[in-house]
């Protein structure tokens, strides 16, 4: 897994013409995590979407390093948004295999990732019948199956049960220990286990 760096400078993001973030700056390196906290509407998701390149910032720069040529940053990162990107009509295994192919991961990672997510027993079930928590687990399994150095996680533990939330925490910890990087927006406390202390960014404002 290649290492990556992120440097954000004077970032301003607006949604629907209303500024939600302004003058934001931080830097992250391999093995580091940033936990973004703040009330609803403070701009946590907008920050992640801007980092993921899904919305263009009004002002400021988002600089990735380690991705090779410019524009290759998209091959560095995993974005886990509110919507789990789980396709009904395909089985769990097919869902994950598709992402392994489309994101240029290895297919061997699919079954171990499903097993780690606790979904191995239902690998051949139609993903359309999954509960919200199971869909979330499948989405997290995608991060595990396809190795990428940067994880952008938007409320990764939403809809997860206690075990699932704990698993998500250890997943992030293992990712960081392997030299990965993570930006996590959450309003729930996530237990990463001992020895992991993400930096904290508190966003003000909101609703």
């Amino acid at each position: 897994m290649p290492e990556a760096g992120l440097k954000v400078d004077d970032l301003c993001v607006a949604r629907g013409g209303r500024p939600v973030l302004s003058g934001l700056g931080f830097a992250l390196g391999p093995g580091e995590a940033l936990e973004v906290r703040g009330p609803n509407g403070a701009g946590k998701s907008s920050l992640l979407m801007a980092l993921a390149g899904l919305i263009a910032p009004e002002k400021g720069t988002i600089g990735w390093s380690g991705g090779g040529e410019a524009g290759e940053s998209r091959a560095l990162l995993h974005y886990l948004g509110h919507r789990a990107a789980v396709k009904p009509g395909l089985t769990l295994r097919e869902n994950l295999t598709f992402w392994a192919d489309a994101l240029r991961g290895a297919r061997d990672g699919v079954m171990p990732a499903l097993a780690a997510a606790g979904l191995a027993a239902i690998a051949d079930l139609d993903a359309g019948v999954l509960s919200a928590g199971q869909a979330r687990r499948l989405a997290l399994a995608r991060l595990l199956a396809i190795r990428r150095p940067v994880w952008l996680l938007d409320e990764p533990t939403a809809a997860l049960d206690k075990d699932g939330a704990g698993w998500a925490g250890t997943l992030v910890a293992a990712h960081l220990a392997g030299g990965g990087m993570a930006v996590i927006a959450t309003h729930l406390d996530i237990a990463y286990g001992s020895g992991v202390s993400p930096r904290r960014l508190d966003l003000e404002g909101g609703a």
Partner: peptide, 17 residues
């Protein structure tokens, strides 16, 4: 439509393609 709704389209933007 369905790829946009379920978030697949956002992830496809991070494909090497």
């Amino acid at each position: 439509g369905s790829d946009f709704e379920d978030g697949s389209l956002a992830i496809l933007r991070h494909a090497p393609l």
